[in-house]
Amino acid sequence: MEVALLAFAAALSVMTGMVTGIFEGKVAIAAVESIGKNPDASGKIQGMAIIGAAISETCAIYGLLVSFLIIFVLGNKL
C-alpha cells in the first residue's frame, strides 16, 4: 500500500513535465517563425530560443528531482 502511494506521488510530480513539453514546443515554433521572417538573425534567435527553452525546462527538472527524492529517499525508508 505504501509503495503504491509513493509510486503515485512520484508519477504526479513528474507530470510537471507535461505542460513544460507543450510550451517548450511553443518556444521552438516562435523561433522557427521568426527565423523564417528574418533569416539573417538566425544565430541570435537560436541562442535566445535555447536560453528560453532551458529556463522554462527548469520547472520540469524540479518535478523530476522531487520524484527522484520520493523514490530513492522515501523509498529507502520503507
Binding site: T58, I61, L65
Partner: peptide
Amino acid sequence: ASLSLRLFGNIIAGSI
C-alpha cells in the same frame, strides 16, 4: 538554486 539544480537534474536524470 536554478543554476545548480538545472545542471544536476539533467545529468542525474540521464544517468538514472
